[in-house]
Design a binder for these strands. Structure first.
Ligand SMILES: NC(=O)c1ccc[n+]([C@@H]2O[C@H](COP(=O)([O-])OP(=O)(O)OC[C@H]3O[C@@H](n4cnc5c(N)ncnc54)[C@H](O)[C@@H]3O)[C@@H](O)[C@H]2O)c1
Ligand SMILES: NC(=O)c1ccc[n+]([C@@H]2O[C@H](COP(=O)([O-])OP(=O)(O)OC[C@H]3O[C@@H](n4cnc5c(N)ncnc54)[C@H](O)[C@@H]3O)[C@@H](O)[C@H]2O)c1
Lengths: 210, 210
DNA sequence: ACTAATATGTGAATTTTGTGTCATAAACAA
DNA sequence: TTGTTTATGACACAAAATTCACATATTAGT
């Protein structure tokens, strides 16, 4: 019933509302939101309706209660523990990123194949990849960020899958398909950049035509 | 007329076809592609049709000619020069990433505000942010990857915009809107992860219900 | 040369996603 | 209390994206 677009919009609503809240606003109208996010106000109301968020006719929506409702929808009552597999350049950047914890996401461990990368005296321990399966099972880890080299990506996904992980955020260029057991969301940065380049070049062409 | 989904699919076709090509295949049928990418074969044919890629009835499509057609569509005749603004943890990871050049994308410079980050003796020079405007103009840079702290994101976008940049791939959590002059594509990694967490938790719920 | 098989290409049908419209409830003013 | 305003919520409508269905061209076998 719910789709990816809806959830991503919900996250955008959340960011905006937190901002408005920090500015001291208490309530908001659907077209305050739709104006800044450049969508229609009826879509905002429809999304809210779908997620069971209700407002007051003429009175708008209460920011505090939307926000707690969104947190409830997103399961923010408990901290989500996430591991990173492949602590190379991008894995390391993500590992030390401070933006996750604010959203209730905690990076609890990293895993790498290089013995000299493994260290447990840091704020987030890095273990050898051999330990990942036991770690997932013992700590009931559901989510993993995958940042290993492309060459070992398939093998690593199989390993994680066999360990019973529920979701993988995959940064390798290999496009994996989800199954009913395991959701894999692929972020292909090169494709995002190629797409942007396409759009910009297209735009330039059209501008020079006129 | 073309949309983001179509271009991203085209990039997926390209990856798959390059793989098939490397395995020695010469031709391909629309349902070879649709099966592995889990879309319908008619969508593949429709995409190809939209982009002017034609096949032979009963004979399928010639891999070499699709690939060169795709490169033509994506403007791969010339190397795309891209700069990175904000050479911190994620900017550095992207800067040293070897995956871009294979796709004809060259990171030509980085820019940062910290004087001790600026160095020109490396394979890709890092200049002070003060130089970004001149660099963009002199080198006719159209595309930028934005990896500065959230706090200075808006200000930096304004700066880049004023320098006449055409596209920004934005990794900061601020969601920017595109204009007719400047396309901004936002990659929000936290949102991607939150979305994944939502889907996985939802799935778990539904499984325990049955 | 004829026939059977088969994959493309395309218009129609369907599904999905987003927008417009408006009756209605709430708030406020007089 | 009554009237006026106004934003929600529901639903009809529109647009976009995807799939279905099949006529048609092409190839291969006999
Ligand atoms: N660096 C980037 O900016 C960037 C951008 C987009 C995509 N990616 C993708 O992300 C992945 C990682 O890229 P990177 O630049 O960080 O590479 P990297 O080589 O710096 O890091 C990879 C890490 O994985 C470890 N590793 C290797 N085999 C392993 C295994 N079997 N199990 C666990 N760990 C293992 C390596 O020791 C290394 O630390 C690649 O697939 C790359 O294509 C990277
Ligand atoms: N690290 C991650 O994994 C990650 C993940 C998702 C999003 N992001 C986002 O990417 C951005 C960068 O994150 P980071 O972790 O690399 O931070 P960082 O602090 O490591 O890097 C930021 C860099 O930008 C430079 N900088 C600061 N002000 C500048 C200015 N005005 N002009 C040019 N450069 C300037 C800093 O000197 C620093 O080198 C942030 O907005 C962050 O939210 C990071």
């Amino acid at each position: 019933m719910t789709n990816k677009g809806q959830i991503l919009r919900l996250l955008n609503y959340k960011n905006l509302l937190k901002h408005l809240q920090s500015l001291g606003f208490k309530k908001v109208f659907s077209d305050n939101i739709s104006d800044t996010l450049e969508i229609s106000s009826s879509l905002v109301r429809k999304d809210f309706g779908n997620f069971g968020i209700t407002g007051n006719r003429k009175g708008g929506y209460d920011i505090d209660s939307i926000l707690s409702k969104i947190d409830e929808i997103l399961g923010k009552d408990e901290i989500q523990r996430v591991i990173i597999v492949g602590v190379g350049r991008i894995g390391e950047a993500l590992m030390s990123y401070q933006g996750f914890i604010k959203e209730g996401i905690q990076i609890v461990a990293g895993f790498d194949i290089e013995p000299d990368k493994t260290k447990t005296d840091t704020s987030v321990p890095i273990y050898h990849i051999d330990k990942v399966s036991d770690f997932i099972i013992e700590n009931k880890i559901k989510i993993c960020i995958l940042t290993v080299p492309q060459m070992v990506a398939k093998h690593t996904v199989d390993l994680l899958s066999a360990s019973g992980i529920g979701g993988i955020l995959n940064f390798t260029p290999i496009k994996f398909q989800s199954t009913s057991e395991l959701t894999i969301n692929n972020i292909n940065i090169v494709h995002e950049l190629e797409n942007l380049i396409y759009v910009v070049n297209k735009q330039k062409e059209n501008q020079s035509k006129t």
